[in-house]
Design a protein around this nucleic acid. Structure first.
Length: 807
RNA sequence: GCGGAUAUGGCGGAACUGGUAGACGCAACAGACUUAAAAUCUGUUGGGACUUUGCUCCCGUGCCGGUUCGAUUCCGGCUUUCCGCACCA
């Protein structure tokens, strides 16, 4: 037998014919939901990243199937999105046509990859049967007050001609096309994810996710505890400021309002109007990216107004400055130059007073600005208190007068979901002149995307130009009305697809409650870390919102999460067409077969790390498969020379069980590289055994164990080997092999003897030797080191070592 | 700036809860087979020392220090690279 691509094809056909990977909905007690983040349909071949994600995770899924789990392993497509639309603008090929064509070719390629998918659960987010329910969820969120429309400054990408969510802006640039994002005021739809900020934060701790991802998500939500303090302005209005350091209130020397704040005009005194207006105009011109820079010098102007310090009645000037962010907190802050770096710089520049009110923990004055916690100074009755106690004391005093309270603030903003583009799910809202924004009736869903549309983007959704689409009647009053021309962010589609998979054919509801409660959470979710603050956060939000609306009973969608690393070009650089260092997996499958590619990716890297592609590495795996073939050929020709279970048999049996144990442990943890290393060791032991007289029945048993542990790593190849051993059923119907602890325990142990921490001898002892005997043997072995020295103590670690400490 | 991760042979990477550092593989070298080469198989392979070439000794997991009988692993302080956040009050 020679493993090659034709072996792949043979078994792929058999699997399909047998429907081998069918999920059994009757055995829910053993269900295991294994999911890779679904992919975007692309016209190009699968790239290394796809193989690394889908191929390698498939090994885990197959392993679990052999362990007796009823594995649910679906496959689908995140089919809406900008690339298809941009492609349409360029070529004139309709997104629907190009997408469906891409899906077809990609499905064919997923087959080549040998994935154990049950395609009867297939879904594609651009299908009407799917986006109907995306729209339905929008309506539910709208009913619940979790979807709302507001006019707000939004991130505008001039190249994509659409608004972006905060999460899609990276360093002031569009995450997708890297164009500089500008600010525009527009009326847009938002999802109130901030309503769930607290729970989203709190539940992170319960997740089996990479610590780093949890940290990123926590930071993104960005909870900070502090207080809201009320400042009376001399024009009669009251403004609230958020601060984490209410203890510094006696050091207040001015307050600052953000330029975008609506109260700016009302509190600007006439004689300062010109200066303030000039400043606002100038601030508006500053590019978002510059404004984000911490290097930039802080600027501002005095408004002419004064605010009253709520704790002591002192009047302080009100300034406008763009170092205050309008969208965080209240857009209005108190400034304590002595104990805040920004305020210190600003006060120094504009000659504002700087008053020390915090000393260090030993109550010693420190150079300013001193931003740490400490002991209060010069703060009336609070002098001498610690920062912590002073915050409580001051806020308590203020709260009695209705001027302050403890609170929490989040960095997280609401999720802007409107997109001025065509290829997405239309927002199911109708705008009526009389009734305003009116929800489309549920029975009228889906709001279908019209096919005949002019794609040319001009800042408005292409749908806005489609008369056929736009013109409709108001569901409330029956009068003339028009549809919302925007579509939803594609992250909306992917925020619930894992809920649709288990019930993908349901035409009555988005998913059946009972079914989804049994199927969720996803037990193992595998995909890139770049989704830490977008997809993974949005999907959690949807799950919690749908739970609160009574559609399911799970708190978290993804119980356990794994991020695959990235496969780099052979030069160690990120693969990119412009660098010319891309690797096309297709050629390698043609040459070696898909199992070789899969095993190469598994063996060459730590899964969560990834690393540079190496032709020598894949060649090594090809040799590994050849060595296996050679072994099996040799076995077939071998004579049965002994029926004994002598030392060679016992040694091989030990390696066999030790390998099974190690592989079982490692695959479970996504440690494929070490798993394959153990399989190689097992192979080496088999080869060594075959050099002596052969007990053929025993050898066959060992070869069967070998094929069983190899099967998830090399599914096609293993089927072929399994068949060659005389089996007629698929190896994936077999149980994952068990290991025998007694075989492992009965092996002689090597005990290391250390003297003062250095290895000086090794003992080989039988497993039943007792501690006293081992210590005696150890002492005898190292007399040349211990002679003439006093032995202070002896440490014995069972099965491992004896450590002798001498003077 | 803040937060997190990372650092191990020529290379990819192992090392369970503090217990033989370098598993497994690549590359390299030597040998076998061959007229020869490729392929294959076998062996060696972290560095150094030697007036005992050894079941030898010393050094060695980014750097400096500490805890411990014993540290790649724990603690403190640096450095590198990568990542996240970044005027968040």
């Amino acid at each position: 037998m020679k493993y090659s691509k034709s072996v792949d094809e043979k078994w792929q056909a058999k699997w399909a014919k047998e429907d081998l990977y069918r999920f059994d909905e009757s055995k829910m007690d053993k269900k295991l939901y294994c999911l890779e983040m679904f992919s975007y349909p692309s016209a190009a071949n699968l790239h290394c990243g796809h193989w690394y994600n889908y191929g390698v995770t498939d090994t885990w899924a197959r392993f679990k199937k052999m362990q007796g789990f009823n594995v649910f392993h679906p496959q689908g497509f995140d089919a809406f999105g900008l690339p298809a639309e941009n492609y349409a603008i360029k070529t004139g090929i309709h997104p629907k046509d190009s997408t469906n064509k891409s899906i077809k070719t990609m499905l064919e390629q997923y087959k080549n990859l040998g994935g154990s998918y049950d395609l009867s659960y297939f879904l594609s987010t651009c299908d009407e049967e799917y986006y109907k329910w995306t729209q339905w969820i929008f309506l539910k969120l709208y009913e619940k007050g979790l979807a709302y429309q507001k006019e707000a400054p939004v991130n505008w990408c001039p190249s994509c001609q659409t608004v972006l969510a905060n999460e899609q802006v990276v360093d002031g640039k569009c995450e997708r096309c890297k164009s500089e994002v500008s600010q525009r005021k527009m009326k847009q739809w938002f999802f109130k994810i901030t309503e769930y900020a607290d729970e989203l934060l709190k539940d992170i701790d319960s997740l089996d996710w990479p610590e780093k991802t949890k940290k990123i998500q926590k930071n993104w939500i960005g909870k900070s505890t502090g207080s809201l303090l009320k400042f009376e302005i001399d024009n009669g209005i009251e403004l609230e400021a958020f601060t984490t350091r209410a203890d510094t209130l006696f050091g207040l020397s001015y307050v600052v309002i953000a330029p975008e704040h609506e109260a700016v005009a009302s509190l600007t005194k006439p004689e300062y109007k010109q200066a303030v207006e000039e400043y606002l105009a100038q601030a508006a011109k500053v590019k978002e990216i510059d404004r984000l820079s911490t290097e930039r010098e802080r600027t501002g102007v005095f408004t002419g107004s004064y605010a009253t310090n709520p704790v002591n009645g002192e009047k302080v000037p009100v300034w406008v400055a763009d170092y205050v962010i309008a969208s965080y907190g209240t857009g209005f802050v108190m400034a304590v130059p002595a104990h805040d770096e920004r305020d210190f710089d600003f006060a120094s520049k504009y000659n504002l007073p700087i008053k020390r009110v915090i000393n260090d923990k030993n109550n010693e004055p420190q150079p300013l600005p001193f931003c740490e916690h400490g002991i209060l100074a010069d703060s009336a009755e609070f002098t001498g208190l610690s920062t912590k106690d002073a915050i409580l004391g001051i806020v308590e005093k203020l709260s009695k007068e209705g001027k302050g309270k403890l609170t929490t603030m989040f960095r997280l903003r609401d999720w802007l979901i409107s997109r001025q583009r065509y290829w997405g799910a239309p927002i199911p809202i109708i705008h009526c002149e009389k009734c305003g924004a009116v929800a489309v009736k549920e029975q009228d869903l889906p709001v279908k995307l019209p096919y005949n549309v002019e794609f040319r983007p001009d800042g408005k959704s292409p749908l806005a130009r489609s008369e056929e689409f736009m013109n409709t009647v108001c569901p409330k009053c029956g009068g003339k009305a028009h549809r919302d021309p925007d579509t939803m962010d594609t992250f909306v589609d992917s925020s619930w697809y894992f809920l649709r998979f288990p019930d993908n054919k349901n035409d009555k509801e988005a998913f059946n409650k009972e079914k989804i409660n049994q199927m969720l959470p996803v037990d193992k979710y595998v995909g890139g870390q770049e989704h830490a603050t977008m997809h993974l956060l949005y999907a959690r939000f949807f799950t919690k919102a749908l739970r609160d609306m009574g559609y399911l009973n799970v708190d978290e969608p993804f119980k356990s999460l794994v991020h695959q690393g990235m496969i780099l070009g052979p030069d160690g650089q990120k693969m990119s067409k412009s660098k010319g260092n891309t690797i096309d997996p297709d050629g390698y499958i043609q040459k070696y077969g898909s199992d070789v590619l899969r095993m190469y990716l598994e063996f060459a890297f730590a899964y969560t790390e990834g690393g540079p592609w190496s032709d020598a590495g894949i060649e090594a795996i090809a040799r590994f498969t050849k060595r296996i073939e050679a072994l099996f050929e040799k076995y077939e020709e071998a004579q049965d020379e002994t029926s004994e279970m002598g030392k060679p048999e016992k040694d091989l049996n030990y390696v066999r069980h030790a390998s099974i144990k190690a592989i079982t442990h490692d695959v479970d943890l996504f440690q494929f590289n070490t798993s394959l290393a153990r399989i190689m060791e097992f192979l080496n032991a088999l080869n060594q055994y075959m050099q002596g007289p052969i007990n053929k029945a025993f050898l066959k048993e060992c070869l069967e164990s070998f094929v069983l542990v190899l099967a998830p790593f090399a599914p096609h190849f293993s089927e072929e080997l399994w068949e060659s051993l005389g089996h007629t059923e698929s190896v994936f119907k077999e149980q994952w092999p068990a290991f025998d602890e007694t075989v492992l325990a009965n092996k002689d142990k090597v005990i290391v003897v250390q003297v003062n921490g250095k290895v000086r001898a090794k003992l080989e002892v039988s497993p039943d030797t007792d501690k006293a005997t081992i210590e005696q043997m150890a002492l005898k072995e190292v007399t040349s080191y211990t002679d003439g020295h006093e032995i202070l103590k002896t440490i014995y670690v069972p099965n491992k070592l004896v450590s002798i400490v001498i003077k």
